[in-house]
Design a protein around this nucleic acid. Structure first.
Length: 508
RNA sequence: GUCCGGUUCGUCUAGGGGUUAGGACACCGCCCUUUCACGGCGGCAACACGGGUUCAAAUCCCGUACCGGAUACCA
């Protein structure tokens, strides 16, 4: 039977980094086994589900490149089927009506309330102790027809245990005594999570359920339902969780944007880099390799390579340099400078377009220049954003000067105020005039530029670095960048002369 | 509370009876150099603790501690 897996987020917020990794592992497993990757939106919590969330999750998945192989399933569309299944179990005596009035939510926070209740009931209450559990069928029917509200609960056996072989955590067992008679259908007719998931997984013919370790106890409950239904459960693989730097829960509310997928897209991350990073959080191929193409990941992925311990997603709040995991940042920079140029170019184009720095010629007459320039400047970049910020001077005359760069490379050498325009004159005579008047063809190349600049500095008995660094700041606005010789060549003779003569930076 | 997991450098991890406990990121130093990076070389840095088993334990077993998850008419 061919593999079918699903990613099943509930749309109560944007695509979380943990969910993204779950999606990734499902995707990799599907591709590795030649199976299908499906998407199901679990939008049954009417109070919390929003359309914006669904959109945001879809955006995140699209960015990561995980397109579902079949149409997206919206769980809320199946509520009627879920109800029918609950009623079937009721008719078969595998579930019962619970007429206990619904308890109003406390003013405590919900998690604390649950914990309190669990602790309080400890040792006193038998979890099977429900007066309606063995209510005679006739009476149950009568009360129901009289309009009395009821929830439908699964009738869990008194003794025995659920067991399954988890592909990651191994044999998992749980005594029935640990599992309450879980509610299948709410008294308002609303089907609950565990029921809905199973019905949909069965209908979607899911063979492998790969999801977070926080679902481990749900799995035992779900197996109970599978058994009641007489359906063979799928294979389960639970994933370790991704934790915050303090090893606590990584939450949207507490940690904000750093856990959202769209943040990374908007910050200029490459999806291939982020995927690579995510894959290594809780999984490894057991080798000393860090960089994996998607194809590599697909071939090497296996459930056996998934860890059992949680991984920390490391970042430092209030430190702009460490706003997200160091390794993720390194990985992105690594991809920026090593990705085949053809693969990088489309991303750069998008970035330049959104910064209004794009020109059609880059795709046409100036294509060779453009590619060479990108290849030159990408060596020092960390994100796609850098192409439009730090790299701005390569694409526009309207660029900013970094004050510290000006202080360091220009202000400290007042003589440069005269020298740099003089260097422009020299360029003109050596490259432009010479070529025009004498028919010489001295090209504005690194090698020739070096000869000219060296001679120029020797005449002034100054260090090469002074002129080079001053030029860099004047021509690009920064103190950092590629070799100044390649900057000159890349900018070209005309722009170099123009900028060397401009007094812009001096007026800061 | 109870049940279920987990624990190798700061972080991600390799290793699963005999290793100088390996790699990556981060950090530090040196080299390269017109700047800053990149790159190269080197350094710092870990088997939670206590008992067993064994000639030999980071590795197997038991316990403790700590961390995490779950414990809803949420998903």
């Amino acid at each position: 039977m061919s593999v079918r897996v699903r990613f099943a987020p509930s749309p109560t917020g944007y695509l979380h980094i943990g969910s993204a990794r779950t999606a990734l592992f499902n995707y990799l497993y599907a591709r590795n086994t030649g199976g299908k990757f499906l998407l199901r939106i679990e939008d049954t919590d009417l109070a919390r589900s929003t359309e914006e969330s669904t959109e945001s999750i879809l955006e995140g998945l699209e960015w990561l490149g995980f397109a579902p192989d079949e149409e997206i399933v919206f769980q809320s569309n199946n509520a009627e089927k879920h109800r029918a299944v609950a009623k079937r179990l009721l008719a078969e005596g595998k579930a019962y009506r619970d007429f206990t009035p619904k308890v109003a939510p406390t003013d405590l926070n919900i998690k604390d309330a649950i914990k309190d209740r669990a602790r309080a009931g400890q040792g006193e209450k038998n979890i099977r102790d429900n007066e309606y559990r063995d209510l005679p069928v006739a009476e149950s029917e009568a009360r129901a027809t009289s309009g009395e509200p009821f929830a439908i609960r699964l009738k869990v056996l008194e003794s025995g245990k659920t067991a399954f072989e988890d592909e990651v955590y191994g044999l998992q067992e749980r005594d029935y005594a640990e599992t309450e008679d879980l509610v299948l259908l709410r008294s308002d007719g609303h089907p609950l999570y565990n029921l809905a998931v199973i019905c949909d997984d069965i209908e979607m013919k899911i063979t492998h359920v790969i999801r977070g370790q926080d679902h481990l106890t749900n799995t035992h409950k779900q197996i109970l339902i599978y058994e009641a239904l007489g359906v063979e459960p799928p294979t389960f693989a639970h994933l370790p969780l991704i934790m915050a730097p303090n090893k606590g829960k990584l939450s949207k509310r507490k940690h904000g944007e750093v856990v959202s997928m769209t943040t990374y897209r908007d910050a200029g991350f490459l999806a291939e880099a982020f995927r690579n990073f995510l894959a290594l959080l809780g999984w490894s191929a057991g080798e000393e390799q860090e960089i994996y193409t998607l194809d590599d990941l697909i071939t090497k992925f296996s459930l056996a390579g998934i860890h059992r311990s949680n991984a920390v997603f490391n970042f430092t709040e209030n430190d702009p340099r460490r706003w997200t995991d160091d390794k993720a940042q390194w990985m992105n920079a690594e991809y920026i400078r090593t990705l085949p140029l053809d693969a990088l170019l489309p991303h750069v184009r998008v970035e330049l377009k959104s910064a209004k720095l794009w020109r059609e010629e880059y795709d046409d007459d100036d294509r060779a220049w453009f590619e060479k320039t990108i290849d030159l400047i990408r060596q020092r970049f960390f994100t796609l954003k850098d192409f439009s910020s730090q790299g701005r001077a390569y694409f526009s005359e309207d660029y900013d000067f970094d004050p510290t760069a000006v202080a360091k490379n220009l202000a400290r050498f007042p003589e440069l105020r005269e020298w740099l325009p003089m260097l422009a004159d020299r360029f003109e005579t050596e490259f432009a005039d010479a070529a025009r008047e004498q028919g010489l063809n001295l090209r504005f190349t690194e090698e020739n530029i070096e000869t000219v600049v060296k001679k120029f500095t020797e005449e002034r008995a100054t260090k090469l670095g002074v002129v080079m660094n001053g030029s860099r700041t004047l021509l690009t606005g920064t103190a950092v960048g590629p070799s100044m010789l390649s900057v000159f060549e890349t900018l070209g003779l005309e722009r170099s002369i123009l900028r060397l003569r401009s007094g812009l930076a001096w007026n800061l």
